[in-house]
Amino acid sequence: MQKPLDPAGLFEYLDELGVKHTTITHPPLFTVAESQAYRLESNGAHTKNLFVKDKKGKIFLLTVGDNAVVDLKQVHHLIGASGRVSFCKAELLMELLGVIPGSVTVLGAVNDRGIQVQVVLDEALMHNDIINAHPLTNEATTSISREDLMVFLRATGHEPLIVKLSADEADMSSTTAQEA
């Protein structure tokens, strides 16, 4: 098994592809809430990621905006999963994406050389010109354009599925208010 790329290897790969990227470093961030202090340093949409599998073992990486709400009880209908999804174990995350929990990122597709993970991008996220993601570590944030994200994913062999995965928190509260 090939050793996963580290951030330096990822940046070299992005450079080889001609993908423009900028990265800021910061203390390790494990949650969206912790990352809020670093938002002012980077423009664009910040992401959160869900690494899940279905009952037949098919693996999905769901990438959404950091304020998005994903209904894990229903998302399988949107992504073509066999039944409800559940979170994958940390060992599988390291094996396939080369990252640890807290560092899950769409950029981890670079390490999925066997193309075992279906990358799913939230349609709302793809309305942003700039996408921010961890560069295989939660000690930095890398910004790339929406178009370059697609170039990167396709170069890794991942044709992403783009679907409406979520509603943002404001949408969820207005839906709840309307239902009440």
Rank of each mutant, 00 (worst) to 15 (best):
K3F: 15
K3Y: 08
D6E: 15
L10R: 05
Y13P: 11
E16P: 11
L17E: 11
G18P: 03
G18K: 01
T22I: 07
I24H: 02
L29V: 08
E34F: 10
Q36P: 05
Q36V: 07
K48G: 09
K58D: 12
L62I: 05
T63D: 12
G65L: 15
G65H: 01
G65T: 11
N67V: 14
V70T: 08
D71P: 02
L78W: 07
A81E: 11
S82W: 12
S82Q: 05
S86N: 00
A90I: 03
A90S: 13
L93F: 07
M94I: 06
M94C: 15
M94Y: 09
E95W: 02
L96P: 03
L97D: 08
G98Y: 10
V99A: 05
I100E: 15
V104L: 11
V106G: 15
L107A: 12
D112V: 01
R113T: 06
R113E: 10
G114E: 09
V119W: 01
V120M: 02
V120D: 07
V120Q: 04
L121Y: 10
E123G: 10
M126H: 00
N132S: 03
A133M: 04
H134W: 12
L136N: 06
L136H: 14
E139C: 08
T142I: 11
T142C: 15
S145D: 12
L149N: 11
M150P: 00
M150R: 11
M150I: 13
L153G: 08
I162S: 01
A167H: 06
E169D: 04
E169W: 06
A170F: 05
A170I: 02
D171R: 04
S174E: 13
S174I: 09
T175M: 15
T175A: 15
T176R: 00
